[in-house]
Design a protein around this nucleic acid. Structure first.
Lengths: 214, 214
DNA sequence: GTCTATACACCGATAGAC
DNA sequence: GTCTATCGGTGTATAGAC
């Protein structure tokens, strides 16, 4: 059983990434904590960047089937869902990531944000290749909920949505501290998700065209 | 006139950051292009992190007075503005950044995002200390436009908004390429701003409370 | 004060022996 | 698969010259 090394690296890396961020987590720190040799990271993963991607893929592999399932329910339903229902069905898959791993939801979205901005299309290609069908179901469901939205506008608004979620989660620790000290409100990831969903929903469902000033 | 060194570093750094990103722009690259000594960066700015902040501050110093002016107009107006009008008044200040510098708008928002996620509160403190009055005016205007929104909900929704804009701009180059190839739509920064404003506006103006599913 | 040369500790990556 | 040794590169610190 020598595959253990690869998993040891993966688990240790994920824990340290969550604790210290990506740049502050060196390969030497990971390998010393995992009790493996420094060079084994490059042997098993190729590079630090690919290690980060490997950590992300474990999440995607757990997340996407749950989304697929939720979207299928909407597609099988006789009547078209409204946007509220579509977005509400993301809460469970997102929170499920928090169940399989401590800070899993924030970690997942952090990795997603990193992957989306850093690499030039690598992550996007991986997602479309492996979960293209799920993405397509999602687009179909949104289209049923808001038929007037053109494909290109949907493209942009879904990326706005991704951006909102990713940025919020990336800075959620800091923001939650501020909210707690300035407004005396303790917010956990779960309640944050329920705070952001109405925002996203309204954004995607916004009237089409430029702002009207009256 | 020996202040030239500091400005040379600042200008060169900004150009290279825009061209190659932050991590791919080493201090040695900056100083060699600027034709100054490596150590002068630390002498004038203290660290690379603080150099990035210094670049950002030049933008903030240009941006915030324009926002202040726009908010003052709303405050001086006899009747309360609606959210559309409030958000529309951000277009001009944002696009003004593109006039004073090529890719200035994207650069500004990129720096802002970097500053917000990286450092723990440094940038936030700088903004509140130097532009607290402007931020306050903005909050007042939003409050006039949507009085039912509680302070803590406004806090969250404005940060969602910041996240949307920052993430979109951070990945705008890649996203615009995709939009162009997949939907044949050429999008520049200006039209992107007009695409995102309705989304933000609807998000901030979303009904209060959790999603209602019917 | 401003600038320079230089050293330091650390980083990710890799070639090659085992 | 694993390991050692080493490479070129990074941000940072400092002693000392102008």
């Amino acid at each position: 059983m020598r595959i253990a090394t690869k998993d040891k690296i993966l688990n240790t890396a994920e824990r340290l990434f969550a604790e210290r961020g990506f740049t502050d987590t060196s390969l030497r720190l990971i390998t010393s904590h995992a009790d493996v040799n420094l060079a084994s990271v490059n042997y098993h993963f190729g590079s630090k960047k690919e290690l980060i991607q490997a950590v992300l893929r474990r999440y995607l592999d757990a997340f996407m089937p749950l989304v697929d399932e939720a979207m299928q329910v909407h597609l099988d339903s006789a009547e078209a869902p409204n946007l509220n229902q579509v977005f509400a069905s993301f809460a469970k898959p997102l929170l499920e990531m928090n169940r399989i791993q401590q800070h899993g939801t924030a970690m997942f979205l952090l990795l997603l944000g990193r992957g989306y901005t850093d690499e030039q299309g690598h992550l996007r290609r991986y997602i479309t290749q492996n979960f293209g069908q799920t993405i397509d179901k999602f687009r179909q469901v949104v289209s049923r909920a808001y038929p007037e939205l053109s494909p290109v506008d949907m493209f942009w608004r879904l990326h706005f949505t991704l951006g909102t979620v990713i940025f919020t989660m990336a800075s959620s620790a800091a923001l939650r501290d501020i909210a707690a000290s300035d407004y005396g409100e303790k917010v956990n990831i779960e309640s944050l998700i329920y705070k952001v969903l109405p925002y996203l929903c309204a954004g995607v469902g916004a009237p089409i065209g430029p702002l009207t000033l009256d």
